[in-house]
Design a protein around this nucleic acid. Sequence first.
DNA 1: TTTATTCATCGTAATATTGCAATATATAAT
DNA 2: ATTATATATTGCAATATTACGATGAATAAA
Lengths: 111, 111
Amino acid sequence: MGLTKSDIFTEEQNHLAQMAKVLAHPARVAILQYLIKVNQCICGDLVNEIGLAQATISQHLRELKSAGIIKGNIEGTSVCYCIDPKVWKDIQQLFDGFFNANPQCQSDDCC
Amino acid sequence: MGLTKSDIFTEEQNHLAQMAKVLAHPARVAILQYLIKVNQCICGDLVNEIGLAQATISQHLRELKSAGIIKGNIEGTSVCYCIDPKVWKDIQQLFDGFFNANPQCQSDDCC
DNA sequence: TTTATTCATCGTAATATTGCAATATATAAT
DNA sequence: ATTATATATTGCAATATTACGATGAATAAA
């Protein structure tokens, strides 16, 4: 066990859960917030800013990158990271649609 | 290791990550979507609807409940679950604020 | 060519998550 | 009192995540 049964859920449910998982660590939230603030940066900046080991930051960057949320461009010895605005917007709408699926449910208690 | 260093992050970063973690499983997304649709239900309904064992659904319900997203009212032998609209709205705004921190970043590529 | 810089990857230890059978608990019905 | 129903909890196995030191790869500077 210990394995999520993805096959019994819809594409949307799996996708939303997967994107939520990417945001489910404060280091990745911090990386994205820093990128939003400074627009672009290299891995070393994040190591200084956040205070985790370089290997750990690199690992979090890989997860963000494999989810498509950020892009990395090689520039000499360093890699310039930035948010992919297209994907960012997609995820934003994904969460927005989820939270606003039924506005009535946000107004009053049910039971 | 294997332990998240929460102390080096802001309250907001930890809170957002924690809420994202609750949504980071398709079963919990499915439970919330079902609750949004039918307004309220009991554990057994979700077992039939989703197709995971009763113990597993109960565990996911506990996580949603301990995060405050859902409430459970005892009604005889069963427990009536529903979304807490106040917390729902809070989380919605939390994510909304995160995604809209800098609208400029959503418009064009950086590097 | 040698050295420094920057980042990725590997290996590993500690911890967390997922799923379920078995069991416990608590109320309702007979 | 006994039985049925509904849910929670416990214990366990499989897998995933987190963090970091050590190492590798690739470019830039000396």
